[in-house]
Design a protein around this nucleic acid. Structure first.
Lengths: 142, 142
DNA sequence: ATTGTTGCAAACGGTTTGCAATTTA
DNA sequence: TAAATTGCAAACCGTTTGCAACAAT
């Protein structure tokens, strides 16, 4: 259990969330991973850490973590949610390899600013965005 | 049946696709609309034009049109596919109102170029992208 | 002791598919 | 008439939910 997990645990306690063994294990799996895991991966890895976790609990816990703003839910492909921990204040978008599924993160300040301009030009007040670039990663081009 | 539809019909004939009344009606609904319709909307509108269309046929036809590169499939919200006809050579991204669902199209050349640069920088060969800006449209801000 | 969480199994909702009947070319 | 398309109903699949047992505070 890293400091990041510790910190989140205190936040959750402060918000009156109950910390069951399942939740703690799910948390440490997701927070200490740099991957973008789906529910089944999370469930399996968390189960290996102790009490088995049912998928109902995995889904419910991930929803709670997303609602609490601790975890981000991604949908790179239709029909499967993936989750990642993004430290607060951080932000990035994604490059996705259409062959092997590899996900690489990127940020670009110019694009971030342009989005606000574009939204404003069309009368929108921007609240969020999704920017994904698809292609073949270096390895899959060989 | 507009010229656009006529043209697509000839393309499909050239590709040996059979043109049933259902397909023709679905085509004219989707091609002559500027909206981003979901399957049920397409099915209902096409049914009003003549022979009723089952949803199996609506799904199958839309898949065929997407595979043929005639129609684009969008997923602004998880769990519902929306379809739009984009003239060949054209391209745009979307602004989506999170309150009323309104979809507005935008293009930005700077962003288009930056995407290629970003992909290259990370060793990817870009093949596509998805860029959606979410927010409140003018009307929903009032 | 109270209230929230868990696991199970059933329900859901959009989409896909097997199959026999029908239609297109 | 050969091959593709249609409609129906069942299957799929990821996700959600009702409920009774159980655990956190």
């Amino acid at each position: 259990m890293t400091r990041a997990v510790d910190e989140i645990v205190s936040q959750l306690k402060a918000r009156q969330k109950r910390l069951t063994p399942q939740r703690l294990n799910i948390l440490s799996v997701v927070v200490d991973s740099t991957e973008h895991l789906d529910i089944e991966q999370i469930r399996q890895r968390a189960s290996r850490l102790g009490d088995p976790v049912s998928s109902a609990t995995a889904y419910r816990t991930m929803r709670m973590l997303v609602d609490e703003g601790i975890i981000k839910e991604r949908h790179f492909k239709e029909g499967v949610a993936r989750y990642e921990y993004v430290e607060s204040g951080e932000h990035h978008d994604h490059l996705i390899c259409t062959q092997c599924g590899r996900v690489t993160e990127f940020t670009n300040d110019t694009i971030e600013e342009l989005q606000l301009v574009i939204a404003a030009k069309h009368g929108y007040r921007m609240t969020g965005h999704k920017h994904e670039i698809y292609g073949l990663c270096a390895r899959c081009q060989e």
